[in-house]
Design a protein around this nucleic acid. Structure first.
Lengths: 208, 208, 208, 208
DNA sequence: AATGAATGAGCGTTCATTCAT
DNA sequence: TATGAATGAACGCTCATTCAT
């Protein structure tokens, strides 16, 4: 999972200490969210993880909701950056690019952060409108990349059909997280699953 | 959804009232879990939903952990029953049976209970060993059915390969829950997704 | 300040311990309110004063608002009882009864509880609708007694004029609280003020 | 309301900007005190109302206590100025002057600021010695004016008796604040109360 | 079998205050 | 002068759990 971002929603961050502190906080918040889940994602734990007082955490994020919003942006940003980067692999055929994208995404789902973060996010999105909207924004862009590549691989695809295929393929891949993700019971089957995913979904695109 | 279970509680439950009370509790607990998620799954809410006192809930389930354990069995049981039932569709070809199984499972994921319950379960399984074990037990049996049918559809499949294909197919289908499940942003694409899933994964099995 | 009451709004109080506990709580709450004022009227202080845990206080009064509502009833009740009792002084002329009522009320305002409680209540009533309503209920009945006696003392008074006179007289008397109340700077002038109040306001009634 | 004061703060305030800032702060503090009451009279709210940072507010007033002290002077000053002005109504008889003073005071108590400010002040004076002293200083001068006029209206009054009458009259008038003040339940009876107050208390002075 | 009563820890949030810049 | 940054205590409230009745 890559890093970066700083679209914070609260806090002032005029001084350099403040700017750094926000990154410290978001980093700590991510660690807590990943390690303990949303049920134990408390201001106190986050403050402790960031090495600051609860009062100071509240200074930067007046409400937990604000912090969650910023955290999701912060965590999602590197994925977004990754998708944009994948789009720009030069000199490869569209099919090779599609294969690469699917491979990279499947590989990523086996990282500790991704395996632990996303199921929490899915559950959260079922209860929290803001979280749902932020999550959907990310997946929209992800699917956009896949749909675009699908259209290049199989030019007979209508825009709508390319979108449908991308929705199917990306959704299906997310499902692997729960079963072959980091320390999940079938993590050992990861290589076979990656190959199956790539071959199956490239075939799906070609068939239309 | 069907019934069953009561394994994890300490009490006697020898009287019919006791058994009924437990069912009342588990039913209430499921409603709370589905409606509010694990983060708001509290003993107080469950007691209120069951129409009993917190004290009495504690009589049946001394700890929240015990209740969660029984709840998972209780919720999972009907899915298990469903899988067994699917196995026994008579007079159809193996491929027709496989198509039917995949269709039924995809359809089910769009019900409110399934869409809301499973992401919570996946998240929970990442933190709680007991939950992980119970979840895995269910998916094992589900995959067993799919693997068995895959072997019948394509007899050239080794047992191991059939298992792999079943893991891939069932995992991928679960991923649809998050995006085309009940009231999820792409719920309207459900029919297209169901068809794609059935065609794609039957082809995958045939191809081996 | 007299005691009694038990019109509690929250809590269950089915057991005798619970019933007694509510009185313990209200008594403690009154002591805190009188001793520390509304600004320091906190659930923690009240719990400590009652010798119970914050959690248990919350068990009886789920919100502070509920507790305040009950407290006001609890504190106001004896005053109400006092007014009703004053109405029933037998064998005295209406003027003697009116003099007695005014005397009693002026005397009461010099008690510690009254001097400290009522200014807090007045301030609270300016911010809190519920408190305002409860306070007005009490003063309504108080003024009713005075208006009734005024009508007996001076039968030429219209009902409306008697009401006006009662409003004026009772309001004016309340004003003394701040200056000749318990440990207030002019507490020594209490006897003179009482006589002035009685003579002045009886004359006002007679004059109409 | 007029201006003045700045006694209780530690800083320099030698620059005109400093003096202006203090006035900005006191003005904001008064607005908060009147609008929200002492219970919500917080440094943060005041700073926000004054459009400055909490840190800067602390520069001018190191403690909340200091700010309260200055605020009371600031709010009280215009009332004092008003009393002095009343004393100097030329060309009228003493009785006309007394009537005028009582009328003005009763009218003032119906303003939003007075209705909301004074009950808070009375409650505060019961807990805070400084506040009590400042309040008493103001009322002393107010009563001085009334006592002086009483002596002119009824020359047979001893100085002591004039003081007693002034204490009674001014205290009684304050009581009207709670019931016929701004948006109080009997605000509509204000004209009748004003007339009753003037007639009753002028008669009291004449009678001695 | 069921309740009400109780605890102590923890929740998100606000507070007066301090201090480096 | 003025700010942002920080603390530690306290706020109202909810929690899982325990226990007498």
């Amino acid at each position: 999972m890559l890093k970066r971002s700083r679209k914070h929603r609260a806090g002032t961050a005029a001084y350099s200490t403040g700017r750094e502190r926000i990154e410290t906080i978001l980093d700590a918040a991510q660690r807590v969210f990943v390690a303990d889940g949303y049920a134990r994602f408390t201001m106190r734990r986050i403050a402790a993880a960031a090495g600051i007082s609860v009062g100071n955490l509240s200074y930067y994020y007046a409400t937990k909701q604000d912090l969650v919003a910023d955290l999701l942006d912060w965590v999602i940003a590197p994925y977004l950056a990754q998708f944009e980067a994948l789009r720009e692999i030069e000199g490869a055929t569209p099919e090779a690019q599609l294969r690469e994208v699917l491979s990279v995404v499947v590989n990523d789902l086996a990282t500790r952060e991704t395996t632990l973060f996303f199921p929490e996010l899915w559950a959260l999105a079922n209860r929290d409108r803001h979280a749902a909207r932020q999550m959907e924004g990310m997946y929209d862009r992800y699917r956009g990349v896949v749909a675009e590549l699908a259209g290049l691989v199989n030019p007979s695809l209508s825009v709508e059909r390319a979108r449908e295929l991308a929705l199917f393929i990306t959704s299906a891949i997310e499902g692997l997280t729960v079963f072959v993700g980091h320390r999940r019971p079938h993590a050992d089957d990861m290589p076979a699953m990656r190959e199956l995913a790539v071959e199956t979904f490239v075939a799906t695109v070609k068939k239309g």
